[in-house]
């Protein structure tokens, strides 16, 4: 293990040294707002070490996909993976970069973080507007002994299109056939109930203000705003707390073997410790880049980020990819992104 790490570091140095005369001084990327804080931190640290600037515009996943397809940026970032057909049509390669989790949050009197338990089908029924009160028997059944108020449930969702929404509704669709049939999956959907907040911070603000509210936000916002999160039952019947360990457990147990181009939404992953609504941000790059130097520089940056960027990521409440997945990603680069000279 130790030897392997040393070898990896040596290899990284070798690559960096060998490529030093052909690296670009500046590369650009665009897309997901979710990864912007960590990309900014990584690129800052990276440019201090190497002098190479990574310009990342957080214009949203949809915008990132459009820009990388148009070839105006060196890489795109999206919270929603493209399927292999779309990737092939646009001649793009795709790999995961960081992991996050989508966490249901509530505003209820006398209920603290992690005390309320929900199941996937129940979440779907609430978001479908079928379960309307907090003291409904469906909720009480999962929370024996806990006093639930006779209060309207105010559903809070995102008003803007978002990768967070995509992962959340993807989970609902996996556990509720009715959700799949009636609403479906997308970065924004026709919500059957509730009010919309703009951005994670908008949803967090509504949750803090409306009594009886139930919404969903990225894990980092739960920590920053000290929101009351609810636990969700995973496919093994357990109620894991949302944290780095349970997100990594989901990433590790997800079936990457059968996912070509990492086309896999990690929600509802198997395993007793796996958090059920785990999400990934994906990077998109051209398979046959027109500008090889630019793409090689981007890959060197991501190699550095995946291998040495974990402490920075954890400091900002992002969850780095588990080591096994990192080696898988690096093998994928070798095979699919043609940057050799």
């Amino acid at each position: 293990m130790k030897l392997g790490k040393v070898a990896l570091v040596a290899a990284a140095f070798f690559v960096a040294a060998g490529a030093s005369h052909v690296v670009a001084q500046q590369v650009t990327g665009a897309g997901s707002t979710f990864v912007y804080p960590i990309l900014a931190a990584w690129s800052d640290a990276y440019s201090k070490q190497t002098g190479i600037k990574i310009n990342y515009q957080s214009i949203g996943s949809g915008g990132g996909i459009a820009q990388i397809k148009a070839g105006t940026v060196d890489f795109g970032a999206s919270d929603m993976p493209l399927d292999p057909h779309q990737l092939e049509a646009a001649n793009l390669a795709q790999f995961p970069l960081v992991i996050g989790g989508v966490v249901p949050v509530v505003h209820l009197p006398d209920i603290g973080p992690g005390e309320l338990r929900l199941s996937g089908p129940l979440l779907a029924d609430i978001f479908l507007g079928k379960v309307k009160k907090w003291d409904a028997p469906e909720i009480a059944a999962l929370n024996p002994g806990r006093k639930l108020p006779h209060l309207d449930i105010t559903v809070v969702h995102r008003s803007d299109g978002s990768g967070t929404t995509f992962n959340f509704v993807d989970y609902l669709a996996k556990v509720s056939p009715e959700w799949r049939a009636k609403v479906g999956v997308g970065t924004s959907v026709a919500w059957p109930a509730g009010i919309g907040g703009k951005g994670n911070e908008g949803v967090a603000a509504y949750i803090q203000r409306v009594k009886g509210a139930l919404g969903y936000v990225e894990y980092a916002y739960v920590l920053q705003n000290k929101l009351t999160y609810a636990l969700v039952q995973n496919s093994a019947g357990e109620f894991p707390s949302p944290n780095g360990a349970s997100f990594q457990a989901a990433a590790a147990s997800a079936d990457w073997d059968h996912a070509s181009d990492f086309y896999l939404v990690m929600t509802n992953a198997p395993g007793p410790n796996a958090y059920p609504i785990t999400a990934t941000t994906f990077v998109l790059m051209p398979r046959y880049p027109k500008n090889v130097t630019q793409s090689a520089t981007v890959l060197a940056f991501f190699r550095w980020a995946l291998e040495h960027g974990q402490p920075l990521a954890e400091k900002l409440n992002y969850v780095p990819l588990p080591p096994a997945l990192v080696s898988r990603v690096e093998a994928y680069w070798q095979a699919n992104i043609h940057v050799r000279f």
Binding site: S61, G62, S159, D160, S162, G186, T187, I195, G196
Partner: peptide, 25 residues
């Protein structure tokens, strides 16, 4: 959701565009 009540949430043209333009996929 269409709702005639003035106390009910709604949306406006400008708000819809601002909210949804970036991720209109």
């Amino acid at each position: 959701d269409f709702n005639i009540s003035l106390l009910a949430p709604s949306t406006s043209i400008a708000a819809t565009i601002a909210n949804e333009f970036t991720e209109a996929d």
